[in-house]
Amino acid sequence: MANNFLGYMMIEGTDSSLRGVALITDTRGIPKEFVRTDPLRPEALDRILYGESFSAYAKQSLILENLLDAVSNDPQIWICNDEEILEPLKTVSRIKSVMLEESPHVPLDAHGHIETSAEPNVYLIQAYVNGAPLRAEFPEGTRTDEVEQSAGILTEAGKSMNILEPFNRLQKSLSYLATGRA
């Protein structure tokens, strides 16, 4: 049965430790599922072998794939705030994916309105009735109809929740897991 869940993915950490969390919420922001990884502590040899690409490898191939494997509810769309995991989020999950950020832009003409941007694969979406539009970056190769569908999902969710708010909770939970302090 199809649900109207939203999926949030966040992977953060330092050079010595990386950790990922995935949250599935309904369109009110109420959590339905939340999973976290153990911290990934790379050895010195891992860093030498992978060099500059270690962070991308760890985020994409280790943390993201294992988080997606562990999640039992498929959301309508995966939302992230990290460009490094945007592409693999779509490729691995085979679900619509978007990177969302606040935008300093003035509100667009109407609720649900989409505006193209000078940047490739980036759109402004008026997801809230009252509020600034969201800056939405889609993976390369996302078709226009997929962008419109994604904007539709976000606009519908924007009626009953602040779409970016779950990132606050993910950030807090990651800090708690890393330091043991709320």
Partner: peptide, 29 residues
């Protein structure tokens, strides 16, 4: 040298269940 391909994932609903949503003031909009 074994390169890791698996990392343990845990259910952490308990951690986030009681965490409140934190909303910002949107009066200007």
């Amino acid at each position: 040298h074994e390169v890791k391909s698996k990392i343990k994932v845990h259910d952490a609903m308990k951690l986030i269940r009681d965490m409140p949503l934190e909303l910002s003031d949107m009066l200007k909009y």
